[in-house]
Amino acid sequence: MIQKKICLLGSFAVGKTSLVKRFIHGKFSDKYLTTIGVKIDKKIVHTADFTAKLLIWDLAGEDEFQKVRLEYLRGASGYLLVADGTRRETLNKALILKEGAKAVIGKKPFVLLLNKADLDGKWEIEPNLVNDFVQKNWIVMTTSAKTGHGVEEAFQILTREMLERENN
């Protein structure tokens, strides 16, 4: 079976670990336990056209104490760039990290996730900003690790992007 390494990249507490947990175990918790270093999980993704084994590297987010260790990206075929929709600055950080990722693994498929979509009232990201990204041909999705909204799709879309890119 084809295997792919992917990474989750983003500021601290944007919900990377929660997204992985939702995707793999279908669970969610309000507790925040910051990831230290990296945590690796795997899941097999099936769709009508393909099956692939994903090895998901959940990297520790960047905060004032530690920088994201981009060397963990090495060998990744794609990544999920995660921002917290209720914290505008996490989006800026995500854009910086995207550049960092490019320096390590070159141009690779990615999906930008604006997480915590369930927290409607606190949303800080204006729709026209998202439009700009779409203009650039980026794939942008809103997700919620809490409700599960968009999570499965996010992983599937990334997988499809990676496999298509490889076949072309």
């Binding site: 295997q3 390494k5 270093g37 990296v38 690796i40 999980d41 795997k42 084994k53 090895l55 590297w57 260790r69 060397e71 963990y72 090495r74 060998g75």
Partner: peptide, 19 residues
């Protein structure tokens, strides 16, 4: 144990040490 995860983790440790 899950060999996929072990192998991922070993690589991560290796990366970590090298870096």
């Amino acid at each position: 144990h899950d060999a996929d995860l072990v192998s991922g983790m070993l690589t991560a440790i290796q990366d970590f040490v090298k870096d």
